[in-house]
Write a protein that binds this DNA or RNA. Structure first.
Lengths: 175, 175
DNA sequence: TTAATTTGGTTTTAAAATTAAACCATAATG
DNA sequence: CATTATGGTTTAATTTTAAAACCAAATTAA
């Protein structure tokens, strides 16, 4: 065992589109990565605990953790008392995923489980009040409406992205 | 070609945990499904347009669309004038994914692209105002704080879920 | 202090999923 | 009416995942 940090193999065919969704999927778009991060949000920090709680194969967990550390979503810290023993902690970049988890939990609870059958909830640690909804806020700080939001190209949009958005809107106009 | 609706093959090994994240991943946890739905949010409705805009292989698109129709995230409507020709439209269940997309776009724009380089943005269709943040709202309608939110078991939590959440919290206490 | 066990992986092999290309029947267009 | 586009299915090669075996270093128990 030479490599202290085993090199995370790059994905064979990542999405190459300049797109926020595509880039997110290159990092999290598989069936285990978000489940690993769920454990991190619960508080799990150890390889063995994450492995037992998710059921992921060890080689895959090893690979995914290396990738998440490389991408600075998690950091690996040595917690050994007489040698090396690792713990994985969420970084600021990782903790910033909370709204993504909140949105997923909210959707799944509403559309896959239904009221009264929610397996997990989010709550305020002090008041205990349950999280119930996400509100979109505009750049001026005022509330926006979900139904009024549309996707548009940003300052970093590539020609291909502009083309894609325009092409897709044509279908919309046809309706 | 007999089956008007080609049977969507079930995933070989779906997550079996009673968990909102796991259940979400069983439906969307691969590298293409959310990209297909991005196209649906842009307005694309046709098989060929989704295929060109994402670059997905046709057999996979066929499979994924069948699954999304089966799960009622999309609906397939016949728009042929002299025969059958299909369009795929978001259902209410599908449109309800907007907060998930908003959270993903927000995170990716902030942590993967950075200010001034956002490939896509969300904006109010009338005022043009840009979407800037997500605010968590409690069950009493008042604002909550992201940093104060914790995960807790809901009314539908299984014994295994309760166990997992408790186990993970032990790591947290150790810190 | 030593022995046994746990931790955090790596390696190997089999099974499953993805990719890319070829093919095809029906629909739409010129 | 001929040509092209649409919306797929099938096949074969490649890549990824799953599961089990294996291992060295760290920790715990005796």
């Amino acid at each position: 065992m030479q490599p202290l940090f085993s090199r995370s193999p790059a994905i064979a065919k990542p999405h190459t589109q300049t797109c926020s969704i595509a880039e997110f999927l290159n990092l999290f778009g598989d069936s285990w990565t978000l489940l690993i991060l769920r454990e991190a949000f619960y508080g799990a920090t150890r390889f063995s605990h994450i492995q037992k709680n998710t059921g992921i194969a060890k080689n895959l967990l090893s690979d995914r953790l290396a990738r998440l550390v490389e991408e600075e979503v998690l950091e690996r810290v040595n917690v050994g008392e007489r040698g090396t023993r690792y713990a994985y902690h969420l970084t600021e970049k990782g903790r910033a995923l909370m709204p993504v988890f909140a949105a997923i939990i909210q959707w799944s609870n509403t559309w896959q489980f239904g009221p009264g059958k929610e397996p997990i909830l989010l709550a305020d640690r002090n008041s205990g009040q349950h999280f119930a909804a996400l509100a979109p806020v505009g750049s001026d700080g005022h509330a926006l409406q979900w139904a009024e939001l549309i996707t548009e190209p940003g300052p970093g949009a590539s020609r291909a992205t502009l083309y894609r958005i325009n092409q897709s809107r044509k279908d919309l106009d046809e309706r």
